[in-house]
Amino acid sequence: MNKVGRRLAVLVGGLSLILAVAGPWITPYDPERPTADVLISPSISHPMGTDASGLDVFSVTVAAYRTDLLIALAAVALSLVVGIVLGVLAGYSFGGSRPLGILGKAVDRLLDLVQSIPVVILGLALVATFGRGMPSVIAAVAFVNVPVFARLLRASLKSAERGGLVQACRSVGLSERATLLRHVLPNSLDSTLANASVALGGAILLTAALSFLGAGVRPPTPEWGALISGGANYVPTGQWWISVFPGLVLSLTVVCFALAGESVRDRLSAASGRKRSVDAAQTGIDIDTDTVMRLA
């Protein structure tokens, strides 16, 4: 992506953050109180039209920013913390400690397993387990994201170990704890943290998907997926605006997070002179023959 694209992303991203914070003072209508205009196509008084119950689509879409952003931030923060802990267990040798080594292997396999189930299906299963509502959506989205963070950190830790940083720390007589917490971990977190921005976009997508399926945030809480779902029945008959606008705003937001993530990643790789395959961990696609080779 070029510079113009990035500036645009910062601009749109900043604007959307302002909307998220100041939404209620900006929107022309109350997002929870229907107006008398029902199913009106986009016009000057209703820039994104109104839905079947007379709610102003623009106002609800702006109000949904808060819900989606809150869920995404909470879920990513949660999965980052858990992911770091599990990543350290899976990726660090702890000076060759045996029980921790076995635990690490087990964690690694478990992450493999969790990542093998498609995210939407895993998310659905988790919501079915925890019950519906905002906390369980946060838990489900966080759960799904944990393996991505853990595996990124695991990869960095392994390369730190190979690269001799761990050996260097040990050779000057640092304790195992100081080696890990003061030197190895801070030096290995960059790609994991860079992924957080991309993960935010993914978290918004998953939250919307769950709500769209009726397994996420419940109406009347304004949420993009639920809004898209609410308008879905009107799309075939030509009333497209109820579903299309929330989806457009959602996509724009996700693009911004992805661009921001990419730019952070570019800077990191420029600074350290190496490229890491964040994509591979993110999408679950192993570009190299890793999976096959590991078994050999």
């Binding site: 030509g238 299309v244 989806g247 996509s251």
Partner: peptide, 26 residues
């Protein structure tokens, strides 16, 4: 590049609805 970027950011269910609106309804 652009296509790869956008396709990762747009929800699939929304694409479905957009196609219904654009191709079927129009």
């Amino acid at each position: 590049g652009g296509y790869g970027f956008l396709a990762g950011a747009v929800p699939d269910f929304w694409i479905g609805l957009a196609l219904i609106s654009l191709l079927y309804a129009q």
